[in-house]
Design a protein around this nucleic acid. Structure first.
Lengths: 233, 233
DNA sequence: ATTTTTCATGAATTCTCATTCAAGAATGCG
DNA sequence: CGCATTCTTGAATGAGAATTCATGAAAAAT
């Protein structure tokens, strides 16, 4: 006997699926699982495929056909596992935040100083934009822009993400407080840094080169550049 | 005899309409107009209605039914005048840039000093976000995020807009050059200000209050705040 | 081995939505 | 006044997309 989660039932997702009401009850139920066939595909691997497509095409732009292909599955299996397109999308955001975004945020606290942490975060961001998958922008930002005012779940998820990023920036600034300009409020400056990051995610879609991005980030960090020039780079 | 522009013919707009190729030839042709019924609606007024819907719902989210209602027209009239949804959308972007965006950019040069011009621009932006139509974000930024990698025209139009804004910022900074920190490159800092503006347009969708926005803008302008505190506000 | 339950397949279905079109109305000209 | 042309109307069309479902297959338990 095993407990299984993650099954969706009775999902009928028209256009109003993206409306406000909770569209699908996620019925997590325990089943006597030891009497039947089990899933053949790796759920995370499949989800990663879906994420890829959503990332490149957006929620509306991605067709279930293409998504299914990228997942290596047939529609039936996808719907059995995730219920509908919208819940699959939500799952993809979850994977993204756990996988990609977390990695970036963790860099902030891991660095030897707050400033260096912040710089590490922006370096990570820029690398992704220039070479990596962020050529299509940040999946989180993209989703937020596309769906925030149609889907409360997306709005909530991303707001939470912004808060997390802001908190990480704030902590970093507080670490370096002693060497920061006195009039600089960590709380305000952290929110500002979130704003800059989002701006970069927008500009990502203009296919900017590294030099341009670096210029922006350097300018953004001017107020906290230590006077002893730790920012010669 | 009059010259008439703006007629579209032979538009067949499936999904690939948003692909790269020019989808519709805008056939501007001269007609002996003095022998037929003429248009009954005010084209700009109708377009403003379409803009409103596109702004709130995005390109894909906006249904032609709702658009037609907002324009006070029937589908037939809309299609006769604009050809298809995508070209109508492009026209709406044009109206937006002429009407809304231009107003903001003009503030930059109109102010007594470069700094004040920049601040006027951001004030204008914030007002729109807190109270005005920018509650749904900036229509330009929204469109860019939604369509930049599906539609070359949108990509081009918005890139041009970014360039214009950047140029306006740069000029403003050059006006104040004498009182600016010596190491500050107007070109780089202008690009950075564009980034901040776009970041604000993203955060607009979190329904931020004025205080939060002001904190961001103040932080953004720290490097160019004149030491004599013209930024007490 | 048979039964039972769940999973996989992919063609069929249903629904939404952009677009068209046939018919009626307005305008100016001869 | 009637003709040519273009506009308006709004229901019909048709394509595309998400979702379902009937069928066959796999795995465990009896």
């Amino acid at each position: 006997m095993k407990n299984f989660e993650c099954q969706f039932k009775n999902c009928r997702a028209g256009n109003e699926t993206l409306g406000n009401a909770l569209p699908c009850k996620r019925i997590s139920f325990a089943v006597s699982q030891d009497m039947a066939r089990h899933r053949e595909f790796d759920e995370e691997e499949a989800l990663a495929g879906a994420l890829e497509v959503f990332w490149q095409r957006g929620f509306t732009g991605a067709g279930m056909q293409e998504i299914c292909a990228a997942m290596g599955l047939n529609p039936g299996s996808v719907y059995a596992a995730y219920g509908n397109k919208r819940d699959l999308f939500l799952a993809a955001i979850g994977l993204y935040l756990d996988d990609v975004t977390r990695e970036g945020i963790d860099l902030i606290a891991a660095a030897p100083s707050g400033r260096e942490g912040i710089r590490a975060y922006f370096d990570y961001l820029m690398d992704g934009i220039v070479a990596g998958r962020r050529q299509w922008g940040c999946f989180g930002t993209n989703s937020f822009m596309e769906l925030a005012d149609r889907d409360d779940a997306v709005q909530a998820i991303m707001k939470e993400h912004f808060d997390k990023l802001e908190a990480a920036f704030r902590k970093a600034l507080e670490r370096d407080r002693a060497s920061l300009p006195g009039h600089l409020e960590p709380a305000d400056f952290a929110r500002y840094l979130v704003c800059v990051a989002q701006g970069l995610n927008v500009l990502a879609k203009t296919a900017p080169d590294r030099r341009a991005l670096q210029g922006i980030v350097d300018a953004a960090m001017l107020p906290i550049a230590s006077l002893e020039e730790d920012f010669v780079r």
